[in-house]
Design a binder for these strands. Structure first.
Lengths: 222, 222
DNA sequence: TTTATACATGATGTATACAAAATTTAGTTT
DNA sequence: AAACTAAATTTTGTATACATCATGTATAAA
């Protein structure tokens, strides 16, 4: 109920933006696919105007690639671009972890540590989805506890951009256990407010995730 | 000639985007100012459509604030938001400096060190503008030598967002000399490929710049 | 057969027209 | 005089029409 109320408040172009983004993230629209304004408008039952706005909004996120006078396609980053994206996320999340060590409140840190325990629980006895959610929460809490909305927004934006590729990691067996072990290092460092260790551990954690994504994508010949 | 040729290749919405951004950066349009689509269209001799596109493009950069169904205004960040912006730039430029230490080529590093010398020269015997350009070059070279286009783009974007406020620093006497001294530490660390020192020095350097901007803006009652 | 040119087609960029919502203003009531 | 209501106005959101440029095709020339 509340959700549909929220949705009806959104403009058509915003709804289209959400819809197209979903199709890209879910792999229904693949990297390189042409995004013809008229075709999309016809399929999504709207006119070209809001479709155009949606495409340009997604281009600003980096999910869509627009060539002037030629048109829009689903962004198709090269492997090295994806590597660079993960590298930037790694640096920014590391920065967030540092700021948490420097100035988060004790209760905020306690919540992060508690969320790590929750990740452990879900990895041991939960579903893949429930672990995924717990993991997302763990990271979100760190971004948020860093006390810098600009940093948080940037990290969220970069993750939106990476989400079409993240899902591949689901397929890697044993990754959950590794991730939990890495989280433990991060949570420990944060609890001790050891920013140097937290930075290195977080950077390493995200870098490993990136490497796995690249490797899995390669194996799937993408 | 080449410049006008390039300009004529740009679409009207792109030209409007550049023009409106310039007016914001130059302070002709002030934070909080209403950006009425029809008024802008009439003044810039275009229709609402490309004006709308330009405003939304600038919103994605963070220079314009759009409230659905209400309209666009020049973004008016709070003081704490500007502080956060500088904090993120500091972290990202620090990350760039680190990556330069880790993997830039010797010639690239030599060019950065040389550019620092050029900054020293301009600070001693150049104009405010020529120093500003040399300083910009110094930072650009570091972003670029980090070998990560995504990181570079992010830093450029954040700096676009900050440029309306950066110009205040021009008014601070003695800042050039301080900045050059800080650059010296950064250049030294990079030359020695000492990433830990480079990170701290760069972060400190940008943080000081941010503090100065905030303080000057306060003194000018902005 | 290959290449070049001209035309036809189709898509993007821009302008205008219409719909819907927010704001303002005038009028009324307390 | 203050506050609330309702109509009028203004502005944003969307649809449609037109202009401009890119692409594909067919024809002709080398």
């Amino acid at each position: 109920m509340a959700l549909s109320t929220i949705k009806s408040d959104l403009s058509l172009s915003q709804l289209l933006c959400i819809q197209i983004e979903r199709e890209i993230v879910e792999g229904k629209l693949l990297p390189g696919d042409k995004l013809d304004e008229e075709v999309l408008a016809a399929r999504l039952k709207a006119s070209r105007t809001p479709v155009r706005e949606a495409l340009r909004a997604l281009a600003s996120v980096g999910l869509v690639h627009i060539q002037p006078r030629i048109g829009a396609t689903v962004n198709k980053p090269t492997v090295s671009e994806v590597i660079e994206l993960f590298e930037v996320v790694a640096e920014m999340e590391a920065a967030a972890a540092r700021l948490v060590c420097v100035r988060a409140s004790d209760p905020e840190i306690a919540k992060i540590v508690a969320q790590h325990k929750s990740c452990e629980d879900q990895a041991r006895s939960g579903t893949a989805d429930s672990y995924f959610d717990a993991n997302t929460q763990f990271h979100n809490m760190i971004w948020s506890a860093a006390g810098n909305h600009v940093l948080e927004d940037q990290i969220v934006l970069l993750n939106r951009r990476l989400s079409p590729y993240r899902r591949f990691v689901t397929f890697k067996p044993g990754r959950q256990e590794e991730a939990v072990a890495e989280h433990a290092q991060i949570a420990d460092a944060i609890q001790n407010r050891n920013s140097v260790v937290a930075v290195v551990a977080m950077r390493e954690h995200v870098t490993i995730l990136g490497s796995d994504v690249i490797q899995l994508a390669r194996n799937l010949r993408l």
